[in-house]
């Protein structure tokens, strides 16, 4: 998932190696981070409602690592991201969201080390519920969503410099024992300064099963869920100056087992995301793992 860098070497007037670093980081980290925002799942979305006038804030911490090879020439990227997600229900069916990421990346390429930190690319999107089928203690919802990722991060370092658009559809089935969220998403990435990251198609499913309490009573005020999430991603190749980059694009499948504690006021979750299949082209870095934890509060 390295990013082509010819134009960036002119933009930043840095040594080739450093430019390669920066470009590599942006591409790799895009691949290993979850597309998630506000959700019941840990790393994706839900179609469960955000009430009219309700505000939800989610703080998510993501620690991710990618690497390849061993020994003196080993490349390694470690990223810590603190993501603030703000959601607001405009109506009972229409909700808007903003995602503000703060990023720190440490990279090692042989003996060379580099660190970058700052604001990442801010994402804004809206979700509209088109289908609702409710029953006693159960629901089925379908909600398309669409949005844009803005170039608020530093080009080639904490962001890719382009305004990208994305959209998809979320399907949620839930009862009091389990929740199944599935999301199909397409990211149409656009060109900026001669570089265009490849489009991404992803399918994500999250299954949450209630561990406790075993039986719900009128006194029940909280749930503990075990969570298992599947993420299937296809990345098209990047373009640099109109040419395809052979060290980009590919296919990955991730699993994220985790746990979640849900109360009336807040939800806390923790999960570890790791690759099951990673078939990236060329010399792209392979993801090792991501640790995700978050807390969300409704107001």
């Amino acid at each position: 998932m390295s990013i082509g860098c010819a134009h960036k070497s002119q933009s930043y007037q840095r040594a080739d190696r450093n430019v390669r670093f920066a470009c590599l980081l942006a591409g790799v980290l895009y691949a290993i981070l979850p597309a998630g925002a506000l959700s019941a799942p840990i790393a994706s979305n839900t179609a469960l409602p955000l009430s009219k006038g309700e505000v939800i804030i989610r703080e998510q911490l993501v620690v991710a690592r990618s690497s390849d090879g061993r020994g003196a020439g080993r490349r390694k990227v470690e990223r810590i991201e603190v993501r603030t997600v703000l959601g607001y229900g405009l109506t009972s069916r229409l909700a808007v969201f903003g995602v503000l990421p703060l990023v720190n990346m440490d990279s090692t390429f042989g003996s060379v080390r580099q660190s970058e930190s700052g604001l990442g690319d801010v994402a804004l999107f809206a979700r509209y519920e088109v289908l609702r089928n409710d029953g006693p203690g159960r629901t089925f919802r379908v909600a398309p969503f669409a949005g844009a990722r803005l170039p608020t991060g530093r080009d080639g370092k904490t962001g890719d410099g382009s305004t990208d658009v994305f959209g998809g559809i979320i399907v949620t089935m839930a009862d009091t024992q389990w929740i199944l969220d599935s999301q199909l998403r397409y990211d149409a990435n656009r060109e900026a300064e001669g570089f265009e990251r490849g489009d991404v198609t992803s399918l994500e499913s999250s299954f949450q099963y209630r561990l406790a309490p075993g039986q719900i009573t009128r006194a029940t005020k909280s749930f503990v869920f075990e969570v298992l999430e599947l993420s299937v991603n296809h990345y098209e190749r990047n373009h640099t100056g109109g040419a395809l980059n052979p060290n980009s694009g590919g296919f990955q499948i991730f699993l994220t087992p985790g746990i979640q504690y849900s109360t009336q006021r807040w939800i806390a979750d923790f999960g570890i995301k790791f690759p099951v299949i990673s078939d990236l082209n060329g010399t792209a870095l392979e993801p090792d793992y991501s640790v995700l934890t978050s807390i969300r509060v409704n107001f």
Binding site: E54, G137, R138, T139, T176, K221, F223, S262, Q264, N298
Partner: peptide, 11 residues
């Protein structure tokens, strides 16, 4: 109908 978890019923 449609309420499935403590977080859902809160509002």
């Amino acid at each position: 109908d449609g309420i499935t978890c403590p977080f859902c019923v809160a509002t």
